[in-house]
Design a protein around this nucleic acid. Sequence first.
DNA 1: AGCAGATGGATCC
DNA 2: TGGATCCCCTCTGC
Length: 579
Amino acid sequence: MAPQTRRLAFPKVVIERDSDTEQSSSDDEGQKEEEGEGPLSESESEEEGKENGFEEKSEENFDAKKKGKAPITISLKKVCKVCKKAGHEAGFKGATYIDCPMKPCFLCKMPGHTTMSCPHRVAIEHGVTPAPHRNTRNALEYVFERQLRPRMPLIKPAYVIPDEVNCAVIRYHSRRVTCLEFHPTTNNILLSGDKKGHVGVWDFCKVSEKMVYGNIHSCIVNNMRFNPTNDGAVYAASSDGTISCTDLETGIALSLMNLNPDGWQGPNKWRMLYGMDINQEKGVVLVADNFGFLYLSGKDQILFFRPPQQIALSIWVDIRTNSKSGEAILIHKKGSKVVGLHCNPIQPELLLSCGNDHFARIWDMRRLEAGSSLYNLPHKRVVNSAYFSPLSGSKILTTSQDNRLRIWDSIFGNLESPSREIVHSHDFNRHLTPFRAEWDPKDPSESLAVVGRYISENYNGAALHPIDFIDVSTGQLVAEVMDPNITTISPVNKLHPRDDVLASGSSRSIFIWRPKAKSEVGEQKDERKIIVCGRAEKKQKFGDQSDDSDDDTCKMKGKNIKSKKSRSKLTPNNLKRKR
DNA sequence: AGCAGATGGATCC
DNA sequence: TGGATCCCCTCTGC
């Protein structure tokens, strides 16, 4: 499928919504008239009509009102489940979610309109605040222009979008997937961490070769990184307060650090590890906790480690030459979670952190002390992730819970305000893994990012949550990929470092996406396989897909398909995008 | 099938 | 600073 923009998709949604709304409101009227609640339902329809901008409808209702029915003061009329007021209802109408008009827009957070009419929902640019015009440059930027710019291509190559599910493991994990990581050298190996602390290793070409190690952590795996000098070992940071180093062959995990050596001493004492990255140059694992502190640990310390001994805090390796060893460094507001750490791919001295104090911060590794950050990048709400661009390391992409992606085009330029803010729905429900927009590591122009979408869209009667590909240099929605069988939200997405492959984690399942064109032209005749885990594990091979899928459409039409029934409908024939 | 629970963040007081 | 309360598209297990 060619990359599809919102502009193409949106009119379809409008049509669905119109008929849905009209139909459901007239249904309501009919039903309530029987119940003797005519006038109330009329006023309800009227408000709904206004909300959607249908003047004719209001007139019709006015006519109906003139015909006259006695007003009733006591009723069992439904109230809005959001604001508890009568006169309107919020929630799903079929597969379309109707916002409560009393609340600010759920998407852009501005008052005066709802998500349905939000300009950011219909704009092809997806709601971009353009970069302020800059005519000042600092000396570093000239260095950037001279040294890095020549390596970047002048003409942006066409994006290749992995937009079709190629294989999947359904209910692979026993809890929701929290992070994914591709093997750095073996193309087909995908690692996944889950909320329970398990780590999965899956060969998605052989598909059935999969393993879940359940003995590594006791709760959420927040981040994983491969050992840059030994790709058979992976580090993981967990909310159990430990960093593990796991041998992928054996599954034997060694604990590199334990911040809760005395066990559970109450929620105020329990330390959880979130952000993690590895600085290859300096040979250290950087990890940050839920109290605002950064810890540095020798990456190769593991070589001297014997389980089940746990390394005490005092033997952390401190790479700083002029400060005390073994000290945690406060890098974000005390008591706030530091959810992301990223080392600059080009400048090993630069570290980027982000957290719940609404800031992303840039640090010089040579001067890591509380309050000594080089720059603080403010956000309106919690920052879920912050990444340097993968090739030049000169851009920054952040995901904040204020439903905005922010892009700084050059860390050498003016960092006072982001170059762009892109409105995007990822303000998540608390029981989801936080959304993190991630760069495409293969894009030489460093402009393509992938991020899951929280809010659903009505696709042929099904409420689906697409995975968005966004050109962060323009804010344009390059593609939204979805599959009728994936009705759950996909907050975790990872693009392959070399292949045109997307891995996404949705609830307990993992999906591998490849470009549809490839299998169509037979360049790479992949067998699409789905493995369903569970009580009776069965293997399904995707058969030929017939175009006649109206049956499924009808089944899904007009209801929110987030039900167990529809979730279990994962069959070869209905795994087909209906647009 | 229906419901509780998970332990998240914003906001108000 | 801390407790209470609310929440909007979850998902699972009992």
